[in-house]
């Protein structure tokens, strides 16, 4: 089956991007190299075509029904806020981690590309009405410390984790890199002018390769790796998202886990080497076994970092990894990788 491509595919081809298959999609992996793009986003500004992600428009009247399906408080947060949350199933496991953009009259829900169909049928099952705007729009993430300065002549900049809109664009000051920036949703017919605006500002295209190293360095989980239908937000060390005080799907098990240590736990680790402990690498901390969910090289720390899922709370921070037959030591870190 031919892979899907985004509305901006012609641009990626013109920039001689390297492509990677990502679920049903063929997406730019890199343009000038993952490390170079990583550093562009850490030091200036880069943009990512993330139009493979879903965009569902939901009328405000549906908000209570959605609230029953997610672990975070959506109703009581102010209008024009953005919210990261998790759709959980009856067992409290993660169906998807998503972003909501609240506007006065509607909500934009952004699920992961691989979970769009699942979330749509989940919403339908629970009588939530939505309009799927994914194919009619593009989504561009502009990220990096110079982003706000560069785009503020066209975009009125909202506070962090807040939304705004112009006649043509819906956007929020959100992202997936740990840097300041915005994510912009535009109708397909407005995509070219947005692209021209960004490139004329000298903002460089960046691919999914650097998006992955950036999100990992920013300690952010990726669905399919850290999050699956076999892990709860508590187990994934995302208890900070549990702000929904009412009952919601799976809340019973999640609340029980909060007062127990008898469950799986996701931890971050650093290896004092460039040797990478990749996904499914086995490790052991004391008596506690774990499996790496994501691992890569951190260009800023110049070390290898990652997430590891342990069977239960490890009794020590020292991890012994078996990396392709070699015993390599690393350490659990409880703070963020970057300050």
């Amino acid at each position: 089956m031919d892979k899907k491509t985004t509305q901006l595919h012609h641009y990626h081809l013109s920039q001689e991007a390297k492509f990677i298959d990502f679920g049903d999609w063929s997406m730019p992996f890199s343009y000038e190299g993952t490390l170079k793009e990583h550093n562009i986003v850490r030091t200036s500004s880069g943009f990512f075509d993330v139009s493979h992600m879903g965009r569902l428009e939901i009328q405000y009247s549906q908000i209570e029904k959605i609230s029953n399906l997610i672990c975070s408080e959506l109703i009581d947060i102010p209008t024009n806020k953005a919210l990261y949350s998790i759709f959980t199933n009856e067992e409290g496991n993660a169906l998807d981690d998503v972003i909501f953009w609240k506007f006065e009259d509607k909500i934009i829900l952004i699920p992961n590309a691989s979970n769009l169909d699942k979330i749509k049928s989940h919403l339908t099952t629970h009588n939530v009405e939505y309009i799927d705007k994914s194919e009619d729009t593009v989504l561009i993430a502009v990220q990096g410390p110079d982003t706000i300065d560069l785009i503020q002549d066209r975009f009125e900049i909202p506070d962090k984790f807040s939304t705004n809109h112009t006649e043509n664009y819906l956007y929020a000051r959100t992202g997936y890199t740990g840097e300041d920036g915005v994510e912009i949703m535009a109708n397909n017919e407005d995509a070219e002018s947005l692209l021209t605006f960004l490139t004329e500002k000298g903002i460089k295209p960046c691919g999914l390769g650097s998006r992955d190293t950036l999100r990992l360095e920013a300690s952010l989980p990726l669905y399919g790796f850290e999050l699956t239908e076999d892990i709860t937000p508590v187990e994934a060390s995302l208890s900070w998202t549990l702000t929904n005080k009412n009952d919601y799907l799976g809340s019973e098990r999640i609340n029980k886990q909060l007062s127990s240590e008898n469950h799986k736990v996701l931890k971050k680790f650093i290896i004092d080497s460039r040797k990478i402990a990749r996904t499914e690498t086995v490790g052991i901390a004391g008596e506690t076994k774990g499996l790496v969910t994501s691992g890569n090289f951190s260009p800023i720390l110049n070390k290898s970092i990652g997430f590891m899922l342990f069977e239960n709370m490890p009794s020590q921070d020292l991890i012994e990894f078996d990396i392709r037959g070699n015993l390599i030591e690393g350490n659990i870190v409880n703070k963020r990788f970057l300050n």
């Binding site: 390297k18 890199s30 190299g33 490390l35 080497s273 460039r274 990478i276 090289f297």
Partner: peptide, 11 residues
């Protein structure tokens, strides 16, 4: 090298 992308470590 082009297929591998950025090389960060060799043993």
């Amino acid at each position: 090298q082009n297929e591998l992308g950025d090389i960060v470590y060799v043993t």
